[in-house]
Amino acid sequence: MDNPNIKPIRELSKILLEVGSLLMASGANSARIRTTIMRIAEGFGYNAELLITHRALMLTIFDDESDYYQSSLKRTSPHGANFRMVSGISRMSWHVVEDNWTFEQIWAEINRLKSLPHFPRIIILATVALAGASFCRLFGGGVVEMLVAYVATFCGLFVRQEAVKKGFNAYLCIFFASFTSCLIAGSSVKFQIGTNPEHAFATSVLYLIPGIPLINSLSDLLDGNIMNGLVRGMNGLMIAFSIALGMLCAILIYNF
């Protein structure tokens, strides 16, 4: 246990697992996680082997000189897309390779990335609602339908954020959001506000679509990470199911 090579390996494995779990939680696909971790490990001159699953990462680092293996396992944190993190970690991995960053610098950078602010809540709500209105326009809605889609998306996303804060199950949060949006957009269908309110109803839940899980699922399948691809695809289907359930409840209430 007095081998001087052991300490840096342990430190490195801690860093790599932290990086991997952050990437997994921020919505990177498996190939990117593997490439980034390998790049950092090689930057320090070690061989690393990685097992990636949806909820945990397993890493083995091997040092040729001392014939020492270090294996460790880490659970990934709950998922929530954060591309600022992915972008920052990718740049950091190049700093490690090109500028020979030390462990302290990497930890400082990881902490800095973790503390980076998200967009202000009102801006997120307003822009995503604008995206909802844009979808409505692309489906062929008019001004009134766009307004309905805007309000429905705004309120739905607000409910989702509140539900996430209260710590509800992730799928239940999506169900609540979809139900709220459909209740608001459905009232325009019920009372025939606007020329074709069905467009507003159909587009009011599009902000919930599981884009990242589904695209990552297919790109994982393409890379040959079949297990991860299937797991992500199933997650996407569960989200689609929650959206449909919320819609169905609203449809049953309005009875159309």
Binding site: F83, I209, I212, I215, G236, A240, I243, M247
Partner: peptide
């Protein structure tokens, strides 16, 4: 712009994701 390509690609293709088809299938 110095960011990984998928940071640009994913948000740009998400509007094309067939969300309407997926939830209609579920319905």
């Amino acid at each position: 712009r110095h960011a990984p390509p998928f940071v640009f690609a994913i948000p740009s293709v998400i509007p094309m994701v067939p969300g309407a088809f997926a939830y209609r299938m579920m319905l």
